[in-house]
Amino acid sequence: MSVVAGIGWHLVGAASAAAFYAPYKKVQGWSWELMWSIGGLFSWVLMPWIVTSMLVPNLAEFYADIPLSTFAMLMFCGALWGIGNITYGLTMRYLGLSMGIGIAIGLNLAVGTLLPPIIKGKFGELMSSNGSTLTMLGIAVALVGIAIVTFAGNAKEKAMGQKAEEFNLRKGVTLAIICGIFSAGFAFGLDAAGPIRAQSEALGINYLYVAMPAYGFIMGGGAIVNFGFCIFNIVTKKEISIRHDISIGKSLLIRNLLFSAMGGIMWYLQFFFYGWGEASVPENLGYINWMLHMSGYVLFGGVIGLVMAEWKGVGTRPVRILILGLLVITAAANIVGMGMAV
Protein backbone atom coordinates (compact mmCIF):
# COMPACT_ATOMS: atom_id res chain seq x y z
CA MET A 1 0.00 0.00 0.00
CA SER A 2 1.19 3.54 -0.79
CA VAL A 3 -0.14 6.84 0.52
CA VAL A 4 0.96 8.64 -2.65
CA ALA A 5 -0.59 5.99 -4.89
CA GLY A 6 -3.86 6.10 -2.93
CA ILE A 7 -4.21 9.86 -3.31
CA GLY A 8 -3.10 9.66 -6.95
CA TRP A 9 -5.67 7.05 -7.95
CA HIS A 10 -8.43 8.96 -6.16
CA LEU A 11 -7.49 12.04 -8.16
CA VAL A 12 -7.56 10.05 -11.42
CA GLY A 13 -11.07 8.83 -10.57
CA ALA A 14 -12.17 12.34 -9.60
CA ALA A 15 -10.85 13.71 -12.90
CA SER A 16 -12.93 11.15 -14.79
CA ALA A 17 -15.99 12.13 -12.75
CA ALA A 18 -15.43 15.84 -13.38
CA ALA A 19 -15.08 15.32 -17.15
CA PHE A 20 -17.77 12.66 -17.72
CA TYR A 21 -20.46 15.09 -18.90
CA ALA A 22 -18.32 16.49 -21.75
CA PRO A 23 -19.31 13.66 -24.19
CA TYR A 24 -22.98 14.10 -23.26
CA LYS A 25 -22.77 17.72 -24.46
CA LYS A 26 -22.04 16.35 -27.94
CA VAL A 27 -25.35 14.45 -28.07
CA GLN A 28 -27.88 16.11 -30.37
CA GLY A 29 -31.57 15.58 -30.99
CA TRP A 30 -32.16 13.28 -28.01
CA SER A 31 -34.12 13.82 -24.83
CA TRP A 32 -32.04 13.98 -21.66
CA GLU A 33 -33.83 10.85 -20.42
CA LEU A 34 -32.77 8.70 -23.38
CA MET A 35 -29.20 9.99 -23.28
CA TRP A 36 -28.93 9.43 -19.52
CA SER A 37 -30.38 5.93 -19.79
CA ILE A 38 -28.01 4.84 -22.58
CA GLY A 39 -25.04 6.23 -20.67
CA GLY A 40 -26.32 4.59 -17.50
CA LEU A 41 -26.63 1.23 -19.24
CA PHE A 42 -22.87 1.32 -19.79
CA SER A 43 -22.05 2.93 -16.45
CA TRP A 44 -24.26 1.04 -14.00
CA VAL A 45 -24.84 -2.30 -15.75
CA LEU A 46 -22.40 -3.30 -18.49
CA MET A 47 -19.04 -2.02 -17.16
CA PRO A 48 -19.38 -3.29 -13.56
CA TRP A 49 -20.33 -6.78 -14.71
CA ILE A 50 -17.78 -6.92 -17.54
CA VAL A 51 -15.01 -6.08 -15.06
CA THR A 52 -16.38 -8.53 -12.49
CA SER A 53 -16.62 -11.35 -15.05
CA MET A 54 -12.97 -10.73 -15.96
CA LEU A 55 -11.97 -11.02 -12.29
CA VAL A 56 -14.20 -13.92 -11.24
CA PRO A 57 -14.15 -17.16 -13.29
CA ASN A 58 -17.39 -18.55 -11.81
CA LEU A 59 -19.87 -15.91 -10.66
CA ALA A 60 -22.43 -18.34 -9.19
CA GLU A 61 -19.81 -20.10 -7.10
CA PHE A 62 -18.20 -16.82 -6.02
CA TYR A 63 -21.44 -15.30 -4.70
CA ALA A 64 -22.92 -18.53 -3.29
CA ASP A 65 -21.54 -18.05 0.22
CA ILE A 66 -22.28 -14.32 0.47
CA PRO A 67 -25.22 -13.60 2.85
CA LEU A 68 -28.36 -12.35 1.14
CA SER A 69 -28.40 -9.49 3.63
CA THR A 70 -25.17 -8.21 2.08
CA PHE A 71 -26.71 -8.07 -1.40
CA ALA A 72 -29.80 -6.34 0.00
CA MET A 73 -27.67 -3.74 1.80
CA LEU A 74 -25.56 -3.08 -1.31
CA MET A 75 -28.67 -2.59 -3.46
CA PHE A 76 -30.24 -0.36 -0.79
CA CYS A 77 -27.13 1.83 -0.54
CA GLY A 78 -26.98 1.98 -4.33
CA ALA A 79 -30.61 3.12 -4.43
CA LEU A 80 -29.76 5.90 -1.96
CA TRP A 81 -26.88 6.90 -4.23
CA GLY A 82 -29.28 6.87 -7.20
CA ILE A 83 -31.66 9.24 -5.40
CA GLY A 84 -28.67 11.49 -4.77
CA ASN A 85 -27.87 11.51 -8.51
CA ILE A 86 -31.38 12.66 -9.37
CA THR A 87 -31.65 15.32 -6.65
CA TYR A 88 -28.23 16.69 -7.69
CA GLY A 89 -29.71 17.87 -10.98
CA LEU A 90 -32.73 19.37 -9.23
CA THR A 91 -30.44 21.18 -6.80
CA MET A 92 -28.76 22.92 -9.74
CA ARG A 93 -32.20 23.87 -11.06
CA TYR A 94 -33.32 25.65 -7.89
CA LEU A 95 -30.01 27.04 -6.56
CA GLY A 96 -27.84 27.46 -9.64
CA LEU A 97 -24.59 25.68 -10.37
CA SER A 98 -22.22 27.28 -7.89
CA MET A 99 -24.41 27.33 -4.79
CA GLY A 100 -25.82 23.88 -5.60
CA ILE A 101 -22.38 22.29 -5.99
CA GLY A 102 -21.08 23.96 -2.82
CA ILE A 103 -23.88 22.75 -0.56
CA ALA A 104 -24.41 19.33 -2.15
CA ILE A 105 -20.74 18.35 -2.52
CA GLY A 106 -19.80 19.80 0.87
CA LEU A 107 -22.49 17.77 2.63
CA ASN A 108 -21.68 14.73 0.51
CA LEU A 109 -18.03 14.93 1.54
CA ALA A 110 -18.80 15.39 5.23
CA VAL A 111 -21.51 12.71 5.45
CA GLY A 112 -19.72 10.10 3.31
CA THR A 113 -16.49 10.60 5.25
CA LEU A 114 -17.66 10.80 8.85
CA LEU A 115 -20.94 8.90 9.09
CA PRO A 116 -19.69 5.34 8.33
CA PRO A 117 -17.19 5.27 11.24
CA ILE A 118 -19.78 6.92 13.51
CA ILE A 119 -22.38 4.27 12.64
CA LYS A 120 -19.83 1.51 13.26
CA GLY A 121 -18.89 3.02 16.64
CA LYS A 122 -15.27 3.54 15.59
CA PHE A 123 -15.14 7.32 15.49
CA GLY A 124 -13.52 7.65 18.92
CA GLU A 125 -10.98 5.00 18.02
CA LEU A 126 -10.13 6.83 14.79
CA MET A 127 -9.72 10.13 16.60
CA SER A 128 -7.17 8.61 18.98
CA SER A 129 -5.08 7.06 16.20
CA ASN A 130 -1.78 8.43 14.89
CA GLY A 131 -2.26 11.17 12.32
CA SER A 132 -5.97 11.66 13.13
CA THR A 133 -5.49 15.36 13.88
CA LEU A 134 -3.92 15.98 10.48
CA THR A 135 -6.52 13.95 8.59
CA MET A 136 -9.41 15.74 10.28
CA LEU A 137 -7.69 19.06 9.58
CA GLY A 138 -7.42 18.00 5.94
CA ILE A 139 -11.17 17.32 5.81
CA ALA A 140 -11.90 20.74 7.32
CA VAL A 141 -9.53 22.46 4.86
CA ALA A 142 -11.22 20.63 1.95
CA LEU A 143 -14.60 22.01 3.05
CA VAL A 144 -13.09 25.51 3.20
CA GLY A 145 -11.71 25.00 -0.32
CA ILE A 146 -15.12 23.92 -1.60
CA ALA A 147 -16.68 26.99 0.01
CA ILE A 148 -14.15 29.24 -1.75
CA VAL A 149 -14.78 27.55 -5.12
CA THR A 150 -18.52 27.97 -4.52
CA PHE A 151 -18.00 31.68 -3.81
CA ALA A 152 -15.98 31.99 -7.03
CA GLY A 153 -18.73 30.24 -8.97
CA ASN A 154 -21.29 32.63 -7.53
CA ALA A 155 -19.16 35.59 -8.63
CA LYS A 156 -18.88 34.05 -12.11
CA GLU A 157 -22.65 33.61 -12.38
CA LYS A 158 -23.22 37.25 -11.40
CA ALA A 159 -20.59 38.49 -13.88
CA MET A 160 -22.19 36.51 -16.71
CA GLY A 161 -25.76 37.31 -15.71
CA GLN A 162 -26.56 33.65 -15.02
CA LYS A 163 -29.19 32.51 -12.56
CA ALA A 164 -30.98 29.34 -11.60
CA GLU A 165 -33.86 28.33 -13.88
CA GLU A 166 -36.40 28.60 -11.07
CA PHE A 167 -34.50 29.95 -8.07
CA ASN A 168 -36.10 28.74 -4.85
CA LEU A 169 -33.88 28.80 -1.78
CA ARG A 170 -36.06 26.57 0.40
CA LYS A 171 -36.53 23.88 -2.25
CA GLY A 172 -32.92 24.11 -3.37
CA VAL A 173 -31.37 23.82 0.09
CA THR A 174 -33.73 20.95 0.98
CA LEU A 175 -32.77 19.08 -2.19
CA ALA A 176 -29.07 19.85 -1.65
CA ILE A 177 -29.26 18.33 1.83
CA ILE A 178 -31.04 15.25 0.45
CA CYS A 179 -28.45 15.00 -2.34
CA GLY A 180 -25.52 15.42 0.03
CA ILE A 181 -26.74 12.68 2.35
CA PHE A 182 -28.08 10.23 -0.22
CA SER A 183 -25.18 10.54 -2.68
CA ALA A 184 -22.91 9.22 0.05
CA GLY A 185 -24.81 5.92 -0.32
CA PHE A 186 -22.00 4.66 -2.54
CA ALA A 187 -19.53 5.14 0.31
CA PHE A 188 -21.91 3.30 2.65
CA GLY A 189 -22.25 0.49 0.10
CA LEU A 190 -18.50 0.02 -0.12
CA ASP A 191 -18.37 -0.02 3.66
CA ALA A 192 -20.96 -2.83 3.68
CA ALA A 193 -19.11 -4.90 1.06
CA GLY A 194 -16.85 -6.66 3.59
CA PRO A 195 -18.00 -10.24 2.81
CA ILE A 196 -17.41 -9.71 -0.92
CA ARG A 197 -13.97 -8.22 -0.28
CA ALA A 198 -13.11 -11.23 1.87
CA GLN A 199 -14.27 -13.60 -0.86
CA SER A 200 -12.20 -11.69 -3.41
CA GLU A 201 -9.11 -11.96 -1.21
CA ALA A 202 -9.72 -15.68 -0.71
CA LEU A 203 -9.87 -16.13 -4.48
CA GLY A 204 -6.52 -14.37 -4.81
CA ILE A 205 -7.83 -11.30 -6.65
CA ASN A 206 -5.30 -8.46 -6.71
CA TYR A 207 -5.86 -6.08 -3.79
CA LEU A 208 -6.62 -3.21 -6.17
CA TYR A 209 -9.74 -5.02 -7.42
CA VAL A 210 -11.16 -6.71 -4.30
CA ALA A 211 -14.12 -4.33 -3.98
CA MET A 212 -15.15 -4.40 -7.64
CA PRO A 213 -17.31 -7.56 -7.52
CA ALA A 214 -19.59 -5.50 -5.24
CA TYR A 215 -20.03 -2.71 -7.79
CA GLY A 216 -22.64 -4.51 -9.87
CA PHE A 217 -25.00 -4.63 -6.90
CA ILE A 218 -24.36 -1.10 -5.62
CA MET A 219 -24.69 0.39 -9.09
CA GLY A 220 -27.62 -1.91 -9.78
CA GLY A 221 -29.54 -0.25 -6.95
CA GLY A 222 -28.72 3.15 -8.42
CA ALA A 223 -29.69 1.95 -11.90
CA ILE A 224 -33.18 0.93 -10.74
CA VAL A 225 -33.82 4.41 -9.34
CA ASN A 226 -32.39 6.29 -12.33
CA PHE A 227 -34.04 4.10 -14.99
CA GLY A 228 -37.32 4.33 -13.10
CA PHE A 229 -37.08 8.12 -13.02
CA CYS A 230 -36.30 8.30 -16.75
CA ILE A 231 -39.10 5.90 -17.71
CA PHE A 232 -41.57 7.85 -15.57
CA ASN A 233 -40.64 11.08 -17.37
CA ILE A 234 -40.84 9.43 -20.80
CA VAL A 235 -44.31 8.07 -20.07
CA THR A 236 -45.75 11.18 -18.41
CA LYS A 237 -44.17 14.08 -20.34
CA LYS A 238 -45.75 14.69 -23.72
CA GLU A 239 -42.74 16.66 -24.99
CA ILE A 240 -40.56 13.52 -24.78
CA SER A 241 -40.87 11.19 -27.78
CA ILE A 242 -38.60 8.15 -28.06
CA ARG A 243 -39.91 7.60 -31.60
CA HIS A 244 -38.64 11.06 -32.51
CA ASP A 245 -35.32 10.46 -30.75
CA ILE A 246 -34.51 7.33 -32.74
CA SER A 247 -35.62 8.75 -36.12
CA ILE A 248 -32.88 11.40 -36.32
CA GLY A 249 -30.84 9.66 -39.01
CA LYS A 250 -28.37 6.78 -38.88
CA SER A 251 -25.13 8.80 -38.65
CA LEU A 252 -26.40 11.05 -35.84
CA LEU A 253 -27.93 8.06 -34.08
CA ILE A 254 -24.57 6.23 -34.07
CA ARG A 255 -22.81 9.42 -32.97
CA ASN A 256 -25.24 9.86 -30.06
CA LEU A 257 -24.83 6.24 -29.01
CA LEU A 258 -21.04 6.54 -29.02
CA PHE A 259 -20.97 9.79 -27.03
CA SER A 260 -23.56 8.51 -24.52
CA ALA A 261 -21.57 5.31 -24.07
CA MET A 262 -18.36 7.32 -23.63
CA GLY A 263 -19.96 9.48 -20.94
CA GLY A 264 -21.27 6.41 -19.13
CA ILE A 265 -17.90 4.65 -19.24
CA MET A 266 -16.14 7.74 -17.89
CA TRP A 267 -18.70 7.89 -15.06
CA TYR A 268 -17.93 4.25 -14.23
CA LEU A 269 -14.17 4.83 -14.36
CA GLN A 270 -14.37 7.25 -11.45
CA PHE A 271 -15.35 4.31 -9.24
CA PHE A 272 -12.93 1.93 -10.92
CA PHE A 273 -10.04 4.17 -9.89
CA TYR A 274 -11.77 4.92 -6.59
CA GLY A 275 -11.42 1.20 -5.90
CA TRP A 276 -7.69 1.38 -6.63
CA GLY A 277 -7.34 4.41 -4.36
CA GLU A 278 -9.31 2.82 -1.55
CA ALA A 279 -7.22 -0.35 -1.76
CA SER A 280 -4.02 1.71 -1.50
CA VAL A 281 -5.09 3.63 1.61
CA PRO A 282 -4.35 1.94 4.98
CA GLU A 283 -7.48 0.24 6.32
CA ASN A 284 -7.51 2.23 9.57
CA LEU A 285 -7.79 5.43 7.51
CA GLY A 286 -10.41 4.13 5.08
CA TYR A 287 -12.85 6.82 6.14
CA ILE A 288 -10.89 9.49 4.24
CA ASN A 289 -11.38 7.83 0.83
CA TRP A 290 -14.67 9.61 0.14
CA MET A 291 -13.17 12.95 1.18
CA LEU A 292 -10.32 12.52 -1.31
CA HIS A 293 -12.72 11.60 -4.09
CA MET A 294 -15.22 14.42 -3.56
CA SER A 295 -12.62 17.14 -3.03
CA GLY A 296 -10.82 15.90 -6.16
CA TYR A 297 -14.13 16.11 -8.02
CA VAL A 298 -14.43 19.81 -7.20
CA LEU A 299 -10.72 20.38 -7.89
CA PHE A 300 -10.82 18.92 -11.41
CA GLY A 301 -14.22 20.42 -12.11
CA GLY A 302 -12.63 23.84 -11.61
CA VAL A 303 -9.55 22.97 -13.66
CA ILE A 304 -11.64 21.61 -16.54
CA GLY A 305 -13.80 24.73 -16.44
CA LEU A 306 -10.69 26.89 -16.84
CA VAL A 307 -9.29 24.74 -19.65
CA MET A 308 -12.59 24.82 -21.54
CA ALA A 309 -12.71 28.64 -21.23
CA GLU A 310 -15.92 28.56 -19.18
CA TRP A 311 -14.52 31.45 -17.12
CA LYS A 312 -13.62 33.60 -20.11
CA GLY A 313 -14.92 37.14 -19.87
CA VAL A 314 -15.83 37.06 -16.15
CA GLY A 315 -12.92 39.24 -15.07
CA THR A 316 -9.84 38.40 -13.06
CA ARG A 317 -11.35 38.47 -9.56
CA PRO A 318 -13.61 35.37 -9.86
CA VAL A 319 -10.75 33.46 -11.53
CA ARG A 320 -8.32 34.42 -8.75
CA ILE A 321 -10.84 33.28 -6.14
CA LEU A 322 -11.35 30.01 -8.02
CA ILE A 323 -7.61 29.35 -8.20
CA LEU A 324 -7.30 30.09 -4.46
CA GLY A 325 -10.04 27.55 -3.76
CA LEU A 326 -8.36 24.92 -5.96
CA LEU A 327 -5.04 25.51 -4.18
CA VAL A 328 -6.75 25.11 -0.80
CA ILE A 329 -8.28 21.80 -1.91
CA THR A 330 -4.87 20.67 -3.16
CA ALA A 331 -3.40 21.61 0.23
CA ALA A 332 -6.15 19.57 1.92
CA ALA A 333 -5.13 16.45 0.00
CA ASN A 334 -1.52 17.00 1.05
CA ILE A 335 -2.50 17.47 4.70
CA VAL A 336 -4.49 14.23 4.59
CA GLY A 337 -1.49 12.55 2.96
CA MET A 338 0.75 13.71 5.82
CA GLY A 339 -1.77 12.38 8.32
CA MET A 340 -1.80 9.02 6.56
CA ALA A 341 1.99 8.89 6.61
CA VAL A 342 2.26 9.42 10.38
Results as ranks from 00 to 15, higher is better:
residue 3 V to D: 02
residue 4 V to M: 13
residue 5 A to L: 13
residue 5 A to G: 10
residue 8 G to L: 03
residue 18 A to V: 14
residue 19 A to G: 04
residue 21 Y to P: 04
residue 32 W to Y: 05
residue 38 I to K: 00
residue 38 I to G: 00
residue 39 G to Y: 01
residue 39 G to L: 00
residue 44 W to E: 00
residue 48 P to Y: 06
residue 51 V to E: 04
residue 58 N to E: 14
residue 58 N to S: 14
residue 60 A to R: 12
residue 61 E to D: 15
residue 62 F to V: 02
residue 64 A to T: 11
residue 67 P to Y: 08
residue 76 F to R: 02
residue 77 C to A: 14
residue 79 A to L: 12
residue 80 L to T: 01
residue 82 G to V: 00
residue 94 Y to D: 04
residue 96 G to R: 14
residue 96 G to A: 15
residue 97 L to D: 14
residue 98 S to G: 14
residue 100 G to I: 08
residue 100 G to H: 08
residue 100 G to K: 03
residue 106 G to S: 01
residue 111 V to I: 11
residue 111 V to S: 01
residue 114 L to F: 06
residue 115 L to Y: 05
residue 119 I to G: 09
residue 125 E to Y: 02
residue 126 L to K: 14
residue 133 T to A: 15
residue 135 T to I: 11
residue 137 L to I: 02
residue 139 I to L: 04
residue 141 V to E: 02
residue 149 V to I: 14
residue 151 F to Y: 15
residue 152 A to M: 14
residue 155 A to Y: 05
residue 156 K to F: 07
residue 162 Q to W: 10
residue 163 K to P: 13
residue 163 K to Q: 12
residue 169 L to C: 10
residue 173 V to R: 12
residue 174 T to R: 06
residue 177 I to D: 03
residue 178 I to K: 13
residue 179 C to L: 08
residue 187 A to K: 00
residue 188 F to V: 07
residue 189 G to W: 07
residue 192 A to M: 05
residue 193 A to Y: 02
residue 195 P to F: 01
residue 196 I to T: 13
residue 197 R to T: 12
residue 197 R to I: 08
residue 203 L to K: 12
residue 204 G to M: 12
residue 208 L to W: 15
residue 210 V to C: 03
residue 211 A to D: 03
residue 215 Y to I: 13
residue 220 G to D: 04
residue 221 G to W: 05
residue 226 N to Y: 01
residue 233 N to I: 05
residue 239 E to D: 06
residue 240 I to G: 04
residue 243 R to N: 15
residue 243 R to M: 09
residue 244 H to S: 04
residue 248 I to Y: 06
residue 249 G to P: 11
residue 249 G to Y: 08
residue 251 S to A: 05
residue 254 I to R: 10
residue 256 N to M: 03
residue 256 N to D: 03
residue 262 M to P: 04
residue 265 I to T: 01
residue 265 I to D: 00
residue 266 M to R: 01
residue 266 M to D: 02
residue 268 Y to W: 09
residue 274 Y to H: 09
residue 275 G to A: 04
residue 282 P to Q: 07
residue 284 N to M: 12
residue 284 N to W: 09
residue 285 L to Y: 05
residue 287 Y to P: 03
residue 291 M to D: 01
residue 296 G to Q: 00
residue 299 L to R: 04
residue 300 F to N: 01
residue 300 F to K: 01
residue 303 V to Q: 13
residue 307 V to W: 15
residue 308 M to A: 06
residue 313 G to E: 14
residue 317 R to A: 14
residue 318 P to F: 13
residue 320 R to W: 15
residue 321 I to N: 10
residue 324 L to N: 06
residue 330 T to E: 07
residue 332 A to M: 13
residue 335 I to M: 11
residue 338 M to P: 08
residue 339 G to D: 02
residue 340 M to A: 03
residue 341 A to V: 09
residue 342 V to F: 15
residue 342 V to P: 10
